[in-house]
Simulated assay, not measured.
Amino acid sequence: MADAGDSRSTQRRLEGLFTAHADRVYAFAAHRLDPEAARDVVSETFLAAWRRIEEIRDPALPWLLGTARKIIANELRRHSRQTALTERLIVMTSERDTGDESASAADRQSVIAAMRHLSEADQEVLTVSAWYDLSGSEAAKVLGCSPGAYAVRLHRARRRLHRQMGPAAAEDCASHPVQEVEP
């Protein structure tokens, strides 16, 4: 067990690293991400530094930037998955394809905002449906329910998503019933 002296020296070293390098780590992250995400990268980088302080040799900046680079890559992958999921949800919730880029961007924002207002259960059934290309019976197994229950959950989740997206989407939902799920 580390004594109080070791703990204080670790804290002083981490504070010194933060004071010396936080701005550069932020600038590194801000070249790839928005300002809020870049601040998160700085926080996660220095959390990793605190956990692995014994591994960090001088000069510390290459270690910190290498760690930040990995965190940025994870964030970009997460964002890419979220964008792909949003695109699939747009296709799932609307049959219209206007070819208008501004409408497509508005649809993406509308779906993202609407998803945030849904319950975890609704988000889960929509994600399983839109993301994994499973059959109805396969998706039901994933969710631990019968295919019939899955179809009902999916229908209700889509309806709630459309309601969150506004009146035009709700009308579109009413005119496009859920496809039958094989038993």
Results as ranks from 00 to 15, higher is better:
residue 172 D to H: 07
residue 164 Q to R: 08
residue 28 F to R: 02
residue 54 E to A: 03
residue 84 A to W: 15
residue 64 L to V: 00
residue 134 L to D: 11
residue 81 R to I: 06
residue 167 P to I: 15
residue 160 R to Y: 02
residue 62 P to R: 00
residue 72 I to R: 11
residue 80 S to Y: 06
residue 70 K to M: 00
residue 114 A to Y: 04
residue 65 L to V: 00
residue 52 R to E: 07
residue 65 L to G: 00
residue 59 P to C: 06
residue 79 H to L: 10
residue 6 D to V: 11
residue 4 A to R: 15
residue 117 H to N: 08
residue 92 M to P: 03
residue 105 A to P: 04
residue 131 W to Q: 13
residue 42 V to D: 06
residue 28 F to D: 05
residue 36 E to G: 10
residue 140 A to T: 14
residue 131 W to E: 13
residue 171 E to A: 15
residue 79 H to K: 08
residue 90 I to V: 15
residue 45 T to H: 01
residue 96 R to G: 03
residue 65 L to C: 01
residue 159 R to L: 06
residue 162 H to R: 04
residue 99 G to Q: 11
residue 48 A to E: 04
residue 112 I to N: 15
residue 154 L to Q: 05
residue 63 W to Q: 04
residue 157 A to Y: 08
residue 165 M to R: 08
residue 127 T to S: 10
residue 64 L to F: 00
residue 164 Q to V: 04
residue 32 R to M: 02
residue 177 P to Q: 06
residue 29 A to G: 04
residue 89 L to D: 10
residue 124 E to R: 04
residue 19 T to C: 04
residue 99 G to M: 09
residue 176 H to C: 07
residue 182 E to N: 13
residue 33 L to R: 14
residue 10 T to K: 02
residue 54 E to H: 01
residue 31 H to W: 08
residue 25 V to I: 01
residue 134 L to S: 12
residue 181 V to W: 02
residue 177 P to T: 02
residue 97 D to L: 14
residue 83 T to M: 14
residue 6 D to L: 06
residue 128 V to H: 06
residue 151 A to I: 01
residue 166 G to N: 09
residue 45 T to G: 01
residue 49 A to V: 04
residue 10 T to W: 07
residue 20 A to V: 02
residue 132 Y to M: 14
residue 75 E to Y: 08
residue 142 V to I: 10
residue 47 L to V: 14
residue 153 R to F: 07
residue 99 G to T: 11
residue 135 S to Y: 01
residue 21 H to L: 01
residue 49 A to K: 06
residue 145 C to I: 13
residue 103 A to Q: 14
residue 50 W to L: 14
residue 47 L to H: 14
residue 162 H to D: 02
residue 25 V to G: 00
residue 21 H to I: 00
residue 168 A to H: 03
residue 69 R to I: 00
residue 166 G to L: 07
residue 123 Q to I: 13
residue 98 T to I: 08
residue 16 G to R: 06
residue 7 S to D: 12
residue 56 I to P: 03
residue 166 G to M: 07
residue 50 W to Q: 12
residue 78 R to G: 09
residue 110 S to T: 15
residue 81 R to L: 12
residue 2 A to T: 13
residue 11 Q to K: 10
residue 148 G to F: 06
residue 142 V to E: 11
residue 71 I to V: 14
residue 108 R to H: 15
residue 78 R to P: 01
residue 86 T to F: 11
residue 183 P to G: 09
residue 183 P to A: 06
residue 79 H to Q: 13
residue 88 R to D: 13
residue 141 K to W: 09
residue 126 L to P: 04
residue 136 G to H: 10
residue 179 Q to C: 10
